[in-house]
Design a protein around this nucleic acid. Structure first.
Length: 581
RNA sequence: CGGGGCGUAGCUCAGCCUGGUAGAGCGCUGCGUUCGGGUCGCAGAGGCCGGAGGUUCGAAUCCUCUCGCCCCGACCA
């Protein structure tokens, strides 16, 4: 493709609404165009990348006999009522939904468990038809609370979603294991460095799930990893062995202390410098909701630890958990925010405790009275230990539960998530099969998602420098950038044309910078920005059939080659990378 | 949803406080020049200053409302 025939325009300056490298570079290079918050036009270059990613995804799925299909984006509410998810998604506010002309409510699909389950139940009757794995690559719609970072978290994005259907739990696990390998292969082929982690299942539900995290400091997710044991989990899910509680002090009667203005552990530490943080028990007030029902929940936690709201949410089986606002805190404690404690909470407030409080005695806690805390409180003496479970957030340095090693917290971009759904959807929606005994059984399901457009963004996050993107060859928009230094020069024109044709003939896609009257510096700057991995410069040695070879990933390493040698090298590298025309 | 910030040329921004009818750089067009890391010169095109209302002789500038975009998400701990 001749560059002069594309709508190629680059920006020298970083657009003001970009925050992360991938967004800034895609915008500067003209790959994307924003229409609205979290909604983008994928320009021709971007689309080539996305198609490459899709190609790899298809290839790896088809290899294990998954079957591609396409489901509608518009979905009727009735289907979602069957699974019981309509309320949750509407509640979370992420569902795009509206009424059609007849007044029926519909939504734009944020995911397709319901539709695929409906499809499968309409044709599966016998155990003989299973297992089967279906997938599609399609635009998904989620009215994210806060779209950001360009393609990283959009409201409309391209996703590959796959669904497996099996006769038993064991068979489901088999499919799940197969898909895990498919995912590893996909991300590896896309040139990404990633970490599979244990994960929370969230709104999708089911029993087990793992996420595939692309290692990047700009990632939105925190993950707990251990280099020694190999443990890796999303921080929402991670568990650890925390430092033990401090020894109990001499038993003293519990007493109230005035603590004016001391709303945080830090404030209290200043007032009681001898009291270790681990003997201050904080009590956080939350408002939990189950859709129609609401309850105020107080959760205790050791002063040197933090709470994990996902664990609390899961324990409660609630739809939503929010920190209580000031009015709710006052209603629950009778005090200003900052003085909540376990003793004397108003009726109807459910009290929970994180496992970190276990064994802590002689502690400080809020007095449920403004500017007041209790000191030297003892469980068993002054109050009963409340319902206790693991609600804690793991911290760097914690020991892993699987033995050896300490936990480290790193960041990642979630590009894939795989779930064992079990029979959650099949039971709710009566997706069954007849077994050998003619008995109806629920189908065991799994679901598997890959953020196709997010892969592209993640690839840039991982592969860029101060001058631009550095595409991994398998997903690059073009394999070769042919930099034609001086169009109009007879020798250069002839050689560039010849090289372009020869490469294309061998199945190597070439972007040919044939722009006349663009200075060499500008051509090189644009070349770096766009990040096409292989570069062949046709310039002053064209008459001798000499070109300059370089690779975007190795700036500064330039090599003088014959046109034939450069062509052969490009062909060979593309073959090695599994890149086909 | 709550809090904060910003909407002026395709992009990055100045002008706004102290109203007098719009500027720069980049980009774009033309001519010339240059030709291996954003050449240089000359000449141009391009904006109802997000929208609506109000105040005023006069509004990009002041006031109200509205829409859009960006950032943060309660430190309670």
């Amino acid at each position: 493709m001749k560059l002069s025939r594309t709508l190629f325009a680059t920006l020298r300056e970083v657009p003001s609404d970009t925050e992360v490298a991938s967004h800034a570079l895609m915008a500067r290079a003209g790959f994307i165009h924003k229409l609205a918050a979290g909604i983008y036009v994928y320009g021709p270059m971007m689309w080539r990348v996305l198609r490459r990613v899709e190609g790899i995804v298809r290839d790896e799925h088809d290899r294990v006999d998954c079957q591609e299909m396409l489901m509608p984006a518009v979905q009727p509410k009735e289907l979602w009522a069957e699974s019981g998810r309509w309320d949750r998604y509407v509640n979370d506010g992420i569902l795009f939904h509206f009424h059609d002309r007849r007044g029926s409510e519909v939504c734009l699909g944020p995911t397709h468990e319901e539709v695929v389950t409906d499809f499968v139940r309409s044709r599966v009757q016998s155990w003989r038809q299973l297992p089967v794995i279906l997938y599609q690559i399609q635009t998904k719609f989620r009215d994210e609370i806060r779209p950001r970072f360009g393609l990283m978290r959009g409201r409309e994005f391209i996703m590959k979603d796959a669904y497996s259907f099996d006769v038993s739990e064991e068979a489901m696990k088999q499919s799940y294991a197969t898909m895990r390998e498919v995912y590893r292969a996909v991300f590896t082929r896309c040139g990404l460095r990633f970490t599979p982690v244990q994960a929370d299942s969230g709104a999708i539900g089911g029993c087990g799930s793992e996420e595939f995290m692309v290692d990047a400091d700009s990632g939105e997710d925190a993950i707990a990893v251990c280099r020694v044991s190999g443990y890796a989990a999303n921080i929402e899910k991670a568990v650890s062995i925390i430092p033990p509680p401090p020894a109990a002090p001499a038993s003293v009667l519990m007493h109230k202390e005035a603590t004016p203005g001391a709303r945080s552990c830090e404030d209290l530490l200043r007032m009681f410098p001898d009291l270790p943080l681990a003997r201050m028990l904080k009590t956080v007030i939350y408002q939990a909701s189950w859709g129609d029902r609401q309850q105020t929940v107080a959760v205790m936690c050791r002063g040197d630890r933090q709470l994990n709201e996902v664990k609390i949410l899961n324990h409660l089986g609630a739809l939503k958990l929010e920190l209580a606002d000031e009015a709710v805190v006052r209603a629950a404690t009778g005090a200003a925010v900052g003085f909540a404690g376990p003793i004397g909470l108003k009726d109807g407030v459910r009290l929970l405790a994180d496992a970190s409080v276990e064994g802590v005695q002689g502690f400080l806690c809020g007095g449920n009275e403004t500017d007041t805390h209790w000191l030297d409180a003892w469980f068993g003496r002054d109050l009963a230990q409340p319902e206790t479970a693991d609600f804690g957030l793991v911290q760097a340095g914690d020991a892993t539960v699987d033995g050896g090693g300490a936990i480290e917290i790193t960041r990642g971009i979630e590009v894939g998530h795989i779930f064992q759904l079990g029979t959650k959807y099949s039971e709710a929606m009566q997706a069954t099969y007849n077994d050998e005994q003619q008995k109806k059984q629920p189908i065991w399901m799994g679901c598997y998602g890959i953020g196709v457009s997010r892969i592209a963004a993640a690839a840039i996050e991982q592969n860029h420098d101060e001058n631009g993107m550095i595409w991994p060859l398998p997903i690059a928009p073009y394999a070769v950038l042919l930099v034609h230094m001086k169009p109009g020069d007879e020798a250069q024109d002839a050689l560039a044309q010849e090289l372009h044709d020869a490469l294309e003939a061998q199945g190597v896609d070439v972007l040919w910078d044939d722009r006349p009257k663009v200075s060499p510096g500008a051509k090189f700057k644009d070349a770096d920005l766009v990040g096409v991995p292989l570069r062949i410069v046709v310039g002053r040695d064209a008459a001798q059939r000499g070109v300059e070879w370089s690779e975007r990933a190795r700036p500064g390493e330039k090599e003088a080659l014959s046109a034939e040698a450069a062509r052969d090298r490009a062909v060979e590298l593309c073959r090695a990378a599994g890149r086909r025309a």
